[in-house]
Each structure stands twice: as structure tokens, then as C-alpha cells.
Design a binder for these strands. Structure first.
Lengths: 126, 126
DNA sequence: GACATATATTCTTATATGGGAATATAAACT
DNA sequence: AGTTTATATTCCCATATAAGAATATATGTC
């Protein structure tokens, strides 16, 4: 009865569109103060605080105090379960050709990666 | 106010754990009668019907009548938006080495795919 | 047509949740 | 200490939703 709480199930936490917007905002990797999110989202401060609180409880954001501000940062790895889940269905929308390409690249990858990893490591900083 | 309905937002539809279970069940690609799902999920028939109805409304399953049965089939492509969304965060949990490999395979893919597509098409039926 | 089987729908109830308003808390500044 | 700024929390309300029970709607069988 009743689905898993938004504060415990990442799928449910992310099912709220405004929280996905907040996540998109934080996706630039920087720290965001609540007030910054309020401005960018045109949303009331308590609402933002509550959404961030939900995201914090599921671990999707981390929080640190900086002066009178609480800085939030995206902890994107917590979204991996969703990716893993969805990825399991990838082959349903990829067509046969794409699958062949994946097989081919898979085999090539192992060989090429070994050569490239050391040689071009510094070229891939971005 | 209030998030998008479960019947209109795939993210919300899938935020219910039992619906994810049903999806997992249907993921074998076969048609499932409601009764089969009821047995496998140990769940009341009306509950299953309702969940399937939600999934049907968001298009995640298709339904066809077969005699007195309604056969449900997974329409996994409707889950692609979730995959696309989550995939955007993939690089957060992949390490630098993995990213280099992806770049390498990406480049190799385009070349190799052209050679393999026609040559081995019949070997990749599964 | 009567009955059985399969599934959907309706109704009720309990609960979660999101927003708004108001208030509380905390830090910074004077 | 008093005031301002930043954020969290509480309270209230409206709504969505999930489950269960009962019932309705096919469809198949005799």
C-alpha cells in the first residue's frame, strides 16, 4: 500500500518534475545556495528547501554549510540505479544495426583502449 | 501543484515499485495475461489490472484482446526518456579511464561498423 | 439461457505529498 | 542586543494514489 516514500526511493524522488529541474540546474557541478535555486527556478524558497531536503534524504545532493548559506551539490552517482534500470531496456529501442555496431565497438574497444589510455591521457582532460 | 499524473508521466508511472516489477516480468518480451501476472506477483487481480492500466495509459504496455484474455506486452521504447535522462549523468560515475575508452570506441565504431554490418548481419540474429 | 472464467471498474479508505503562509532557526552585521 | 539575511520547519489544505471489497462487463462453455 502506498509507494515507497520520496525520501527513500530515488525513482520516486525524481518522479517530481521540479526536482528534476533542480537536478538539471545542479548538473553543472557547482555548489548552489538555496537562494540561487530560488531565483533560477522562480519558485518560493520553502518549496525549494523542501525539494532539496527530499533530494538530500535520498542522497542525490550533498549539503555543506558555508556561512549563513547551505550549499548544495549534485551527487549524481545516486542516479546510477535509475540509469542501470533503464539501460536494461536499451536494446528494445536500438535497432539491429546499432546492436551490431555495439558488438563491433565492444571488441575494438578493448584493444584500442589499451593503446590510447596512456598515450592520450593528457589530451582528455575535458 | 502536485506532480504530473502517473498516467501521463512515465517517470511517475515507474516510480511505483510494483509497476517496475510488472515491467521486469514483461521484459521477457512475451505477452502476459493479467492472470499470469497475478500469479507471479502474488497480488490481487484488481491491483494488477490497475497497474497495467496505468502502464497502458503512459504507453509502456500495449494491450490486445485474445479471447477472454487481455494480453499485455511491454513497449519498452517508452522507457527511453528515462534512459536518456539518466544517461546524461553517466560521466559522473564513470571514471576518466572509462571515458577515454568511450572516446576510443566511438571513433573505432564508425569505421568498424561499416565493415561488419553487411558481412556479419546474419550472425547476429540473437 | 445459465454458469464459469477473466478482467475492468467503482467505491471507499488511508496515506503521501506539494504548495502556501507563517514561523522558527541561524548566521552576519551594526 | 537588535536587525537583516538565508534557510528550514510547521501547519493547513487540496489532491493524487494505492489497496481492498464489491460489482460490472465481457467472453467462453454447457
Amino acid at each position: 500500500m502506498a509507494r515507497a516514500a520520496t525520501t527513500t526511493d530515488v525513482f520516486n524522488a525524481v518522479a517530481e518534475p521540479r526536482r528534476r529541474e533542480i537536478i538539471a540546474l545542479l548538473a553543472n557541478g557547482r555548489e548552489w545556495a538555496v537562494g540561487d535555486v530560488v531565483v533560477r527556478m522562480q519558485m518560493a524558497q520553502p518549496a525549494v528547501s523542501k525539494h532539496l531536503s527530499v533530494l538530500h534524504k535520498v542522497g542525490v545532493v550533498t549539503r555543506i554549510k558555508r556561512g549563513q548559506h547551505r550549499m548544495y551539490r549534485l551527487e549524481a552517482a545516486k542516479l546510477k540505479p535509475i540509469h542501470d534500470w533503464a539501460k536494461a531496456f536499451e536494446h528494445y529501442w536500438n535497432n539491429q544495426i546499432d546492436r551490431i555496431k555495439e558488438r563491433a565497438e565492444q571488441k575494438a574497444m578493448e584493444r584500442i583502449a589499451r593503446e590510447n589510455t596512456k598515450a592520450h591521457a593528457q589530451d582528455e582532460s575535458k
